[in-house]
Design a protein around this nucleic acid. Structure first.
Lengths: 250, 250
DNA sequence: TCGAATTTGTGCGTATGTATC
DNA sequence: GGATACATACGCACAAATTCG
């Protein structure tokens, strides 16, 4: 069926895309079902399916099983404030947000001991294989996952103290800075390195995204007197959020 | 074939991904052909194809028609320091880097007057259509483009002053802070919002990337006494660089 | 230089499971 | 319950690019 131009599924996807961006198919409307696409464009089931997949990978539409394929709202990515640490009310990234009065969030977490991998060991300035407490978080906003985080703390710092488990005890969920303060470790510095890459299927499934979507990855490390005491990888869907810093000059 | 767990194509993709990240399938090696995947995992052609597509969308592998599917090289992205402003020696992002003794860079630029678009006007807190000086930069490291930047300055601030053109006159190329200081505008704050998206074909051509690569976009705005005096979009290839911040806590 | 084999990319038809309406 | 629609899966076919003898 081709005579020198682009594949059929790209042609169909392109036509539907045009209707979406020019407003002829506004957000929340259903686009033609696979069967109707097949008829309207005179293509096979596979082509119709593949065309829908292209638009889904671009984040323009979202398939709801049993219901239809719907045009997504294209949110302007919202900034997530990360300008250092704010003492008021706690210190997880979420608590920062809540202090801004902009986000109402919840989170789940699970911790387990592990041995530091080479990369983590380097970031924590310990030896690979040293014991660390590894905690995985899922942060939700209005019930929707918006951020994944994996943190590592050297057990050489927190081991055999009340704050060994980040989310348990009286200081559970209070954030790194307070928890460390409780064991007389004064956190005074933090570095954040922001990168980006295509999200892994596993991550995007948790974040409600689609394979191929871009995620921001923040590698954050807290320091006390020059020694790293916690490091974390924060994974954020880039189509919905930006990472915002506010810095003084000079 | 399913009995309650994840789809077959994700299982296959997951297994191949594991072999890639743990080094059992190092960069530049070919992964099993579709036919071999079909045999080895006991799945159909469709599943093998779909699994390869997942890995391609994740940027882990790249398909070469007629040849095979190859594991991509994943360079460790290097940090670009952006921790506020450092007075020593100048103030373009590059000069910051040079102060660190890590990068030797050159840059080109071209300026022209323009009318502020709605988005730029909002960032500069002016009216859409107001005159601005728009300057485009290409930063190179060792001759290779590593960063694109487009900056906007309200002519209401710099117009009819010696620093109207960022890269000319005695303060040419000296950076926003010094140039503004020369006309008694004291820059005291900066916000940076880091986002990410697939690079545009035009950008990736300038940066020497391939279509589909991810770029980081930093929206930076300088403020003087609460008034925006410059804003810029900085585009950075995410496979080669990260954006690094260093912040005090408390 | 030629040609055969391999491999990816695209496309078709169909079947089944499952969620939604 | 029945109809609709998406998601996954199987098997097949062919074109274009590449590889290799």
């Amino acid at each position: 069926m081709t005579f020198g131009e682009q594949p059929a599924y790209l042609r169909v996807a392109g036509d539907l895309r045009k209707k979406i961006v020019n407003g002829s198919l506004p957000p929340h409307t259903r686009l033609p079902s696979q069967a109707r696409i097949r008829e309207e464009y005179g293509v096979s089931d596979t082509v119709a399916l593949e065309a829908r997949k292209v638009l889904m990978a671009e984040g323009l539409v979202e398939g709801r099983s049993g219901s239809g394929t719907y045009v997504r709202e294209r949110p302007v990515p919202r900034p997530i404030a990360r300008s250092g640490y704010r003492p008021a009310g706690g210190a997880t990234p979420f608590r920062q947000e809540q202090a801004d009065g902009e986000v109402r969030g919840t989170w789940e977490s699970s911790s387990e001991q592990a041995e530091a991998s080479g990369a983590v060991a380097e970031r924590l300035d310990i030896r690979a294989g040293d014991r660390v407490m590894c905690t995985k978080y899922v942060f939700r906003e209005a019930g929707e996952a918006m951020m994944l985080s994996t943190s590592w703390e050297p057990l050489a710092v927190t081991g055999r103290t009340p704050v060994m488990l980040p989310e348990e005890g009286p200081l559970g969920g209070m954030g790194v800075v307070e928890r460390m303060a409780a064991i007389d470790v004064v956190v005074d510095n933090v570095t954040e390195e922001v990168g980006a890459r295509p999200g892994l299927a596993e991550e995007l499934q948790a974040l409600g995204g689609v394979p191929g979507h871009v995620v921001l990855v923040v590698q954050r490390t807290y320091y006390a007197s020059g020694r790293p005491v916690e490091t974390a990888d924060v994974v954020i869907p880039a189509d919905r959020y930006r990472v915002a810093y506010h810095l003084p000059v000079k």
